[in-house]
Design a protein around this nucleic acid. Structure first.
Length: 243
DNA sequence: AAGGATGTTGCCTG
DNA sequence: TCAGGCAACATCCT
């Protein structure tokens, strides 16, 4: 379900309901969090930061993270009980298998909005500069680093590395500047292609390496657990260079 | 139809 | 003491 673009789709769907400024009438669900706290409160805004979906109330916000298996339903529900459900006058929003957390601080203190690849504030030049602090990191790890590429996940990581012709095990310090720029540029452009394809239900048709057995050039694809978190990297040893 | 995976946290161990 | 490893969470597609 969730890489940054999927969360943007969720936000857009909810924005269409025009619920900002209206009150939550009831909050139910299996979560242990204080649901009463949100009842009768006006939603000031729905925001996203990378994979985080944020419901803003006066003085606090609820952070919803769909993790690996999270789902939601808008004005529908699944058979299983929701983790949390927001009942409005004419609408209901249900979230399943997600991680929930209240944020008490001002969101501007908590989040660097410019780190979100889906944000207008996200910037190639600035990201390339920031990469200088990650010289010893593998390129596959920086693409999962939510402080640098917030919203990027394993699909975006693998597809971007194929697009720029770089193997996941390459270290940042070994990449020529042009590849660092390509890394940042393609991360952003692929995230927006992801958004477009996801809306068309054609995302998986566009995968060139992720979950594939051969690359577009008909070479075999390697599948290997690489990096700090041992996430799966799919890559082509021929089309992608090891620096 | 069993196995794997779009993610993150926090505990345990050496 | 701290970094690394790994379980836990829980669902759906292949």
């Amino acid at each position: 379900m969730p890489e940054g673009p999927s969360i943007v789709i969720l936000r857009e769907l909810i924005e269409d309901l025009k619920l900002e400024g209206t009150k939550v009438l009831k909050v139910i669900g299996t979560t242990e969090l204080d649901k009463k706290r949100m009842e009768g409160q006006k939603v000031l805004a729905f925001k996203t930061w990378g994979k985080h979906f944020l419901i803003c109330f006066k003085g606090f916000a609820l952070r919803i993270h769909l993790m690996m298996f999270g789902t939601y339903r808008i004005n529908e529900h699944k058979k299983v009980k929701p983790k949390i459900s927001f009942i409005f006058k004419d609408n209901e929003i249900n979230f399943y298998t997600c991680s929930l957390q209240f944020i008490e601080d001002d969101l501007d203190n908590v989040y660097d909005w410019s780190a979100d690849i889906m944000s207008k504030k996200w910037d190639v030049k600035k990201t390339v500069k920031r990469l200088a602090d990650h010289n010893d990191d593998l390129v596959c790890d920086v693409l999962l680093n939510q402080q640098l590429f917030s919203g990027s996940g394993n699909i975006i990581k693998n597809e971007v590395l194929y697009q720029i012709g770089v193997q996941p095990k390459s270290k940042i310090k070994d990449l020529p500047l042009i590849k660092l720029k390509a890394l940042a540029t393609h991360a952003k452009s692929y995230a927006f292609d992801f958004l477009k394809w996801k809306k068309e239900y054609t995302l998986s048709k566009h995968w060139e390496v992720y979950s594939q057995k051969i690359c577009p050039q008909k070479h075999p694809i390697k599948k290997e657990d690489i990096g700090k978190n041992k996430r799966i990297s799919y890559y082509c040893e021929t089309c992608q260079k090891l620096y």
